[in-house]
């Protein structure tokens, strides 16, 4: 466990909490892509099946459970509790465009051809593209609430910190997981454009709106 990993996990948790607080306080999930949140719930579900097969550490188990709970509460808020505020019209990304290639790739390129490994690989590939419906929604409406951009910032920061974590682990432990690293790099690239807008607009007190 290194500082990048811890900070990455904290950013990830913070992002999910920011999103939940935003929805809870405003009693609205306007501007949030329900499809991205369903994908994240699917990511955690397929990745954390090892909760039943292997014990890594108390930290690992507790965080996994918290992530799962947060993801499902978020989906519940969007599709049940505050579904009237959900902007279905603009959440029009076609999920099959992500799910079909990700499923195919997880069968082709994995560490071992076992159900749990394939599901783990599926979750890694899926996580790398799960934010796309959200980014698509923002590009469609042309704007995002400031709190939504904070959510995206911490989610992107988590990925960037994990890259630093892998570089650290490569040098100190000789640990290198190619599937996770390649997907992590791809995922981080998706946030670059957003990071630029966040720094040039949101941090200067302006609302994120696209020309």
């Amino acid at each position: 466990m290194n500082i990048f990993r811890i900070l990455g996990d904290v950013s990830h948790l913070l992002a999910m909490i920011i999103l939940l607080v935003k929805i809870w306080r405003s009693k609205s999930c306007a501007g949030i892509s329900g499809k991205s949140q369903i994908l994240f719930a699917l990511v955690f579900t397929t990745r954390y099946l090892d909760l039943f097969t292997i014990f890594i550490s108390v930290y690992n188990t507790v965080m996994k459970v918290i992530f799962l709970v947060c993801a499902y509460i978020t989906v519940y808020m969007i599709y049940m509790k505050f579904h009237k505020t959900f902007d279905r019209e603009h959440d029009s990304f076609r999920l099959e465009f992500l799910l079909v290639p990700v499923t195919g790739l997880s069968f082709l390129e994995n560490h071992s051809f076992t159900p749990l490994e394939i599901l783990w690989t599926f979750s890694i590939y899926l996580e790398s593209v799960a934010i796309l419906p959200q980014l698509f929604m923002i590009s469609k409406t042309g704007e995002a609430e400031t709190i939504t951009t904070h959510y995206l910032f911490f989610l992107g920061l988590y990925r960037a910190l994990y890259l630093a974590n892998w570089i650290w682990r490569y040098h100190t432990e000789n640990f290198y997981d190619q599937i996770a690293v390649v997907s992590g790099v791809v995922q981080t690239i998706f946030y670059c454009d957003f990071f630029y807008l966040y720094v040039t607009k949101v941090l200067k007190g302006k609302k994120l709106s696209l020309p």
């Binding site: 090892d50 097969t53 965080m63 992530f67 560490h111 076992t114 749990l116 490994e117």
Partner: peptide, 10 residues
């Protein structure tokens, strides 16, 4: 079934 690879990250 026990995973062959130890995935210790979140």
């Amino acid at each position: 079934i026990v995973a062959k690879t130890l995935h210790d990250e979140l």
